[in-house]
């Protein structure tokens, strides 16, 4: 099975032997990749019942709990990196989650679907809420409660005093350099507190 492009970018950002906390770790595929290729240790957090046995089968230390309010058990700066992969847009308390991530971790990796992507803009221009590979839901059944663009996220990072160590924007599997907020469908940030 080929490795998802965004996962391989994340793996490149994880130093060997890091302590990692993966928020919303799903079936544990990403964590397993980081354990196998970066000797990462740590925990994954997942709420979905059906994913728990899959994580365990992948050898992930999965903790079943809600991300919102479920991070209190982790001490300040106790992880090298806290990852939130394509989940921030579904969080109710966006700012709090980011604050918690950089309280617990020295670094944070956040990835999200870019609402500024041209395809999204086109659908909005046509008068409909966008549906795409990165935003695969209808407006009435989406778990996403906060949709935002790369420019929005840059502004939030600035407001919160976060330093962007690295940023990678993808359109499908292809890296995007210029006009990222229009051409990129998925944004990936590696952050720390400045």
């Amino acid at each position: 099975m080929s490795i998802r492009r965004d996962y391989s970018v994340i793996a490149d950002w994880i130093n060997p032997g890091s302590r990692v906390l993966d928020l919303g770790c799903g079936d544990g595929t990403l964590f397993k990749l980081l354990a196998d290729t970066r000797q990462a240790t740590g925990y994954g957090i997942e709420i979905d019942d059906d994913k728990i046995p899959l994580c365990i089968a992948n050898g992930v230390n999965v903790l079943q709990r809600d991300l919102e309010g479920g991070l209190r058990d982790f001490d300040d700066q106790s992880f090298d990196c806290v990852i939130l992969s394509q989940t921030l847009q579904a969080m109710r308390h966006t700012e709090l989650v980011l604050t918690e991530m950089l309280r617990i971790g020295r670094e944070a990796i956040v990835t999200f679907p870019n609402f500024g992507y041209w395809h999204v803009r086109m659908q909005l221009l046509m008068g409909r809420m966008p549906v795409s590979d990165d935003l695969p839901y209808q407006w009435y059944d989406t778990p996403n409660v906060h949709l935002f663009t790369i420019a929005d996220f840059d502004a939030l990072c600035e407001k919160k005093g976060y330093r962007v160590i690295s940023r990678q924007v993808l359109a499908g599997d292809t890296p995007v350099i210029a006009l990222a907020n229009i051409r990129g469908s998925l944004a990936m940030y590696r952050l720390t507190r400045s």
Binding site: R19, T41, D49, I56, N61, V62, L63, R65, D73
Partner: peptide, 21 residues
């Protein structure tokens, strides 16, 4: 149970935790 999990996390032990509804 979460108290036990927390104590294990504090010791950096391997632990999986399931909360079955």
């Amino acid at each position: 149970s979460r108290e036990i999990v927390k104590a294990l996390i504090d010791n950096r032990r391997d632990v999986a935790y399931a909360e079955i509804a």
